[in-house]
């Protein structure tokens, strides 16, 4: 293992995060606060409880997931896309580092940033609503697992994208709708059929569901299934990444 290389990439990426602190941390916190004000406080006060949880508290796990997914993807995709774009990738490619070390460096940094952000949002949420975390260990587990999985996914997008538009298209056109429709703001049991069954094809449902269970002990689908689906997505991403490095796809001509 080339630990110095992992550390170099990780430090480089984290330095980028702190250099762009406003964009990296402040703006997601601000937008999440807006969600709380609009959905939690303003609209939420007119909504009833869901499974015994106030609406404001109910949406917290969903909001954290919303930010976690989009930030993980955008951090990790930009992290690998930009060196490709600027040409500085030559150095990573010519260095004695294995694909695994490259991925740990880039994805590790992106996931770290997302987890930091997720926790920051939880702290911010506390200002607006009271909430409990029934299974804090599992909450952290889901947070970490989701951050890693979607940072891996972002890494794939960053490798695949050859222009800025492609970099944006998946988070904007796929992830955001899936998150909104994945039960971030409602319980899927509130949906009529066939939407309720169709929703089960949305992988984000499982992420939000597991995460919400860690908070309140309530779940629309079995938590084991949630965990399994998240792990499955993780394995798929790992598979794609190992294929990328094996074939050199869009990285090594």
């Amino acid at each position: 293992m080339n630990f110095y290389a992992i550390r170099a990439i990780y430090k480089f990426e984290m330095a980028r995060t702190f250099r762009t602190l406003m964009q990296s941390i402040a703006s997601p916190v601000l937008s999440t606060s807006l969600y709380f004000i609009v959905f939690g406080t303003a609209i939420g006060s007119r909504m009833g409880e869901i499974d015994g949880v106030s609406y404001g508290a109910f949406i917290i796990p969903g909001l954290v997931m919303l930010s976690l997914l989009s930030e993980s993807i955008s951090n990790a995709s930009f992290g690998i896309f930009f060196p490709k774009f600027s040409g500085t990738i030559y150095e990573v490619l010519s260095a004695p580092v294995s694909p695994l070390e490259i991925v740990i460096g880039y994805v590790g940094a992106a996931a770290t940033k997302s987890v930091m952000l997720g926790l920051l949002i939880l702290v911010t949420a506390r200002i607006f609503v009271d909430y409990t975390i029934v299974h804090p260990f599992w909450m952290l587990g889901f947070l970490l697992l989701t951050a890693i999985t979607f940072s891996l996914f972002g890494f794939i997008i960053g490798v695949w994208a050859d222009d800025f538009q492609k970099l944006q298209v998946i988070p904007l056109m796929v992830i955001t709708p899936l998150t909104f429709l994945g039960g971030a703001f409602y319980s899927i049991s509130m949906l009529p059929e066939p939407w309720q069954s169709l929703t089960l094809f949305n992988p984000v449902v499982y992420l939000i569901n597991g995460f919400r269970w860690a908070f309140y002990g309530i779940a629309d689908v079995n938590v084991g299934v949630s965990l399994g689906m998240t792990l499955l997505f993780l394995v798929i991403c790992l598979g794609i990444i190992s294929w990328i490095f094996k074939t050199g796809y869009r990285i090594r001509s």
Partner: peptide
């Protein structure tokens, strides 16, 4: 410094 680390 980054380069040195990258090369192990």
């Amino acid at each position: 410094t980054f380069s040195r680390g990258l090369f192990g």
